[in-house]
Design a protein around this nucleic acid. Structure first.
Length: 432
RNA sequence: GUGAAAGUAGCUCAGUUGGAUAGAGCAUCGGAUUGUGGUUCCGAGGGUCGCGGGUUCGAAUCCCGUCUUUCACCCCA
């Protein structure tokens, strides 16, 4: 019986694996040069851990199961709760600030669609223990440092930035009760995601006073921070939030990435735990969902039973990013290739010598391969080409004089050399 | 969970109004080439037409169900 792959999963054949590794290696490299250390946690956690933050609806969106001790567990749909748990566990002994990153494999039991699968990888970068906007700027820079390196320019992508504090203080000034904010965020988050008329309808449903609803929409459509004044008279709280955004943009400017960034009060993020700066990174062509996003979550550690410690971070999945890079021809996985391919003129007679040489080359750190088939030299060279071999070693009659032929596959030049001399001249391979 | 479209070889796709052993290109394997690769030429293997049922003398083709994929919604950490 043929068993199909599970819905929403991917098989990584070698060419796909090369792409996946290229993406993840890039993430890791950039994280490290931005001063972040890698961590990871278990791939499953107590189901309850994901309920704390997000409530019961979330349970339907994740893969959960009972272990033999009747514990309710779940495959991790995100790693931030694990991060919060790990940090809380050692908070008194960890030097602050904590700058950690991870590339967890995550699972969500949603219906797959474009840029969204049930199993994927997500780059997470977090700074814990820094209150100021410099930390948010550094995290955003880190994301842009990567995206810029793979070839995306300010013409391709934009980081849309807003602030939950700004939104909250403005809504408050408009007369929306504090309690209602949390249920309002998911609706406001839809501003640019739902069709225009539909958003208006949703908003009116949530905010009965049509005048206020109009004002909210008006605010969410402004393009520059200074326009806030035109909508509402700023109070101290509003000014404080505006100042923080200004500080953030100032840092981003100093870091040389401000051309990528744009204030956009339409960015809210659906999640309840964001407390201040929030942002999402978009493809400017607008076809795809957000490439990534993040923000400040100053209350989360406390919610997980720890002390009150400020924190900020972002996440970027591999699905949307992969689609986008593919569309633009920016996927450049490392080409595979063998350093040496050992070919035999008379395989029946010299295979033993070939394998010995292969083993010796491998021991010295080179990749080396040979053909299992007793095929013609022509065919073996064909295989060498197919494997992208840099050099071929040909074993023929010269072997009687302890000589072999080294053929450079790019220049087609070849030379005879004593086996001893060949190995004596061999330098250790260059590290990548 | 809701709605829509699609499913023919490993991949991309042909396949007439329902008609005979279901085709092509690419890929794979073998040969042309007994000491020289990437090109070329020749040949071969590979399909329960997603699966199950129905209509019909006859189904890849029409109908129903189901699975999968894609797209949109819900949700988006």
């Amino acid at each position: 019986m043929k068993i199909p792959p599970v819905k929403g999963t991917r098989d990584f054949y070698p060419p796909d694996m090369a792409i996946r590794n290229w993406i993840i290696d890039g993430w890791k490299k950039v994280s490290l040069r931005n001063g972040f250390e890698e961590y990871d946690g278990p791939i499953f956690e107590y189901l309850q851990m994901y309920q704390i933050k997000s409530g019961d609806e979330i349970i339907e969106q994740l893969f959960s199961f009972k272990d033999r001790g009747d514990r309710d567990l779940a495959l991790r749909p995100e790693i931030t709760p694990t991060l919060a748990r790990m940090v809380n566990q050692k908070i008194s002994s960890l030097p602050l600030p904590i700058k950690w990153f991870s590339v967890p494999r995550l699972f969500r039991a949603e219906r797959p669609q474009k840029g969204r699968l049930r199993e994927f990888f997500q780059w997470n970068v977090d700074i814990i223990g820094v209150e100021g906007a410099l930390a948010d700027a550094e995290v955003i820079f880190c994301a842009l440092d990567y995206l810029r390196e793979v070839g995306l320019t300010p013409r391709d992508i934009v980081v849309k930035i807003s602030s939950r504090k700004l939104l909250a203080s403005i809504l408050e000034k408009m007369g929306i009760a504090d309690k209602r904010l949390e249920s309002l965020y998911p609706v406001l988050d839809k501003k640019d995601k739902a069709p225009e008329g539909e958003f208006k309808q949703m908003l009116n449903k949530k905010v009965a006073d049509a005048k206020i609803a109009d004002k909210i929409q008006e605010f969410m459509e402004i393009k520059v921070i200074s326009d806030i004044k035109k909508i509402i008279e700023p109070d101290d709280k509003i000014n404080e939030a505006i100042d923080k955004i200004a500080v953030l943009f100032d840092w981003l400017k100093r870091m040389g990435v401000v051309e990528y960034c744009q204030f956009d009060p339409g960015i809210v993020r659906g999640l309840a735990y964001y407390t201040d700066i929030v942002y999402e990174i978009y493809d400017k062509r607008g076809e795809l969902r957000a490439i990534g996003g993040g923000g400040r979550y100053d209350d989360l550690l406390k919610q997980f039973g720890g002390p009150e410690v400020p924190a900020t971070g972002f996440g970027m999945g591999d699905c949307v990013l992969g689609l986008m890079l593919e569309e633009r021809g920016l996927l450049k996985p490392k080409p595979t290739g063998t350093d040496y391919f050992i070919a035999c003129v008379e395989p029946e007679q010299t295979l033993q010598d070939a394998v010995k040489i292969v083993a010796e080359l491998r021991t010295k750190g080179y990749s080396a391969d040979f053909s299992y088939k007793s095929a013609s030299l022509s065919r073996q060279l064909k295989q060498a080409s197919a494997q992208n071999a840099k050099k071929c070693i040909i074993l023929g009659d010269e072997l009687k004089n302890n000589e072999l032929v080294v053929k450079d596959m790019t220049t087609s030049k070849q030379k005879r050399i004593k086996i001893d001399a060949f190995f004596a001249e061999l330098n250790p391979p260059k590290a990548d």
